[in-house]
């Protein structure tokens, strides 16, 4: 933790946040917001939160910028000035922001000093997880072991929340397009060729490596930063890259929206199914150690490690397909035909 480095990133972050709030052009605002997300990712790496930084690099700086661009593309790009009551509106906003800000800053007087190793948060609960993760689960990455095992019940519902978010996007935007049931991918016409061949060639080379890396991130999340969420977002981003550099229909020949919907529910089913399997075998819900009786050549400790891999695969499936579904719907206004 080098405070000069910290301060530089935070100052740049504040500048980017102010710029993306005040820019009149929404396209530039979205790009600056992507830069802001990337600065946050650097900040988290610097604080030692590698898994969070990895997620933010994939999600904040990558996928959510693309979502913003797709939404701005289909709506208006320039912010119109407010017709009346502008000053009042700004004053109310400023007053609320400064008021809450002063209250929060005065509350920081009670906080422990920044990065103090003896702060209450670091002395009461967390030492248990740091010392016991290897003896209890055999997984060196503490974030993965807490995420998928100690706190697995919560992560299961987080996965369900992502699934529900995808359903919500489909049901909000789907009524402007055709019904999913009637969907047939239309033949790819010659209008695909309007994209630059350099971009298409680069995409063709990139995508296999991206997907291979995503699978590595999912499977190796026990030993290095990564896991189901990060790997799933990278997998989804590889499909989104195909959709951007070619056409939405080219991507849909690889992964139809209907099939993505099936995959997303399959992911939640894998996660809860592993939990229910533990329950059926006589242990608690999501207590993977009982699985050593059916997995060959494992001890109860290794079974917990393998159980985590199973649920991470489920998480990755859901996250990947929901990212693809949100992009397809936002980029085509629910029609899922052409895209940007």
């Amino acid at each position: 933790m080098i405070w000069q480095f910290d301060f530089l990133i935070l100052a740049l972050g504040v500048i980017c946040a102010l710029a993306s709030i005040s820019l009149k052009d929404l396209l530039s605002a979205a790009i600056v917001f992507g830069a802001y997300s990337f600065l946050m990712c650097l900040l988290w790496t610097e604080m030692g939160a590698v898994d969070v930084a990895f997620t933010e690099a994939a999600v904040g700086a990558g996928v959510s910028t693309v979502f913003f661009l797709a939404a701005v593309f289909h709506t208006s790009r320039i912010v119109q000035p407010r017709r009346r009551g502008r000053m009042l509106h700004k004053l109310v906003g400023l007053a609320a922001a400064t008021g809450i800000g002063i209250l929060l800053i005065s509350a920081t007087a009670d906080f422990p000093n920044w990065a103090n190793p003896n702060s209450p948060a670091s002395t009461h609960l967390s030492p248990f997880y740091i010392t016991e993760t290897i003896p209890l689960t055999g997984v060196p990455n503490i974030v993965t072991s807490v995420l998928a095992d100690f706190r697995g019940f919560d992560t299961m519902f987080e996965t369900a929340v992502i699934f529900v978010a995808g359903l919500a996007v489909v049901s909000i935007l789907g009524r402007y397009g055709r019904r999913l049931r009637d969907y047939e991918p239309s033949p790819v016409g010659e209008d695909v060729a309007h994209q630059s061949p350099i971009i298409q060639a680069a995409c063709r080379i990139f995508v296999p490596f991206m997907q291979l890396f995503a699978l590595y991130v999912v499977a190796h999340g026990h030993h290095s930063p990564g896991g189901g969420f990060q790997g799933g977002v990278i997998l989804g981003a590889s499909f989104i890259l195909v959709a951007i550099s070619y056409d939405l229909r080219v991507m849909q020949r690889r992964l139809q929206e209907r099939r993505a919907m099936l995959f997303s529910s399959l992911g939640v089913l894998i996660y809860s199914g592993i939990g229910a399997l533990c329950l059926l075998m006589g242990a608690n819900f999501l207590d993977y150690s009982i699985l050593h009786t059916i997995l060959p050549a494992t001890s109860p400790i290794m079974a917990r490690s393998h159980g985590m891999l199973g649920v991470e695969v489920g998480v990755a499936l859901t996250v990947m397909s929901i990212m693809v579904i949100i992009y397809v719907n936002v980029a085509s206004y629910g029609k899922s035909d052409r895209g940007l």
Binding site: L125, A165, A168
Partner: peptide
Amino acid sequence: PLPHVLMLTAIVVGVGTLGVALA
């Protein structure tokens, strides 16, 4: 590691809610 776990899922759920908000 505990705040990392909480925030990791919050980021991914955040992109889900961002998608809904944009929709």
